[in-house]
Design a protein around this nucleic acid. Structure first.
Lengths: 118, 118
DNA sequence: CGGCATCCTTGGAGATACTG
DNA sequence: CAGTATCTCCAAGGATGCCG
């Protein structure tokens, strides 16, 4: 995480934190992961490496949907794919470092869910 | 999900949803807020009370969409509505306590966005 | 096993116009 | 100002089938 130089604090009014829809990080981030399937898959991969059908079962996504989501996520560098071309083909997916940085987000969501779900 | 069309179908897919929910309540939370517009509106309301057209401008949602999202969020007790029936009608929306508990989530997203968004 | 191609259904959401 | 009522369009996503 690129931490800002702590001492060189510009006098930019922190109050003008520009929460405008166009500029806001939250909106940007939401657009970036957007789809619910992406979040579900990413969250699933926090457990570690998983293969295609494993994700298919755990997420409940159809192979078509899952395939497209995985493509997207890989293109966004959230996940990485490793293939083994042995007897039955095996395809493993893991979070990249970038993907891993989403953990705090999921943790926050998780915590919230514990308090307010069910 | 908030609007439930009268489906006479038996909910056979409850099994799937349950499996997802079992994995982690992250999925549950995602389903709960699901739509991107909900998140955008909720995030916007962190600034404090806002009125309809204000939200319309800041979020960029159409009045139709915004209206439905607000209805949903109110039904879910994420937000509250206060009306003033004076000269020109005024309608104010604020986060409830429940809505406020989402702040850590948005903070996490915000922080992530700062690091990884362009 | 891990997908891609195809068809098809659904609803999310914009545009527009109207009301209290 | 704060919505509601329609109409419409398009992408998300399920189901199915095929293939290396």
């Amino acid at each position: 995480m690129a931490t800002q130089p702590p001492s060189a604090e510009t006098d930019d009014d922190t109050e003008v934190k520009q929460r405008n829809a166009d500029v806001c990080n939250v909106v940007g981030a939401i657009e970036e992961m957007g789809a619910k399937w992406k979040l579900i898959v990413l969250n699933d991969l926090r457990d570690g490496e998983k293969r295609f059908n494993e994700l298919k079962r755990s997420t409940g996504a159809s192979s078509y949907t899952l395939s497209r989501v995985l493509d997207d996520l890989e293109e966004q560098r959230f996940i990485e794919n490793r293939k083994e071309f042995e007897s039955p083909v095996a395809s493993y997916y893991t979070l990249t470092e970038k993907g891993g940085t989403l953990c705090p987000v999921f943790d926050a969501i998780d915590e919230w869910g514990e308090d307010w779900l069910e």
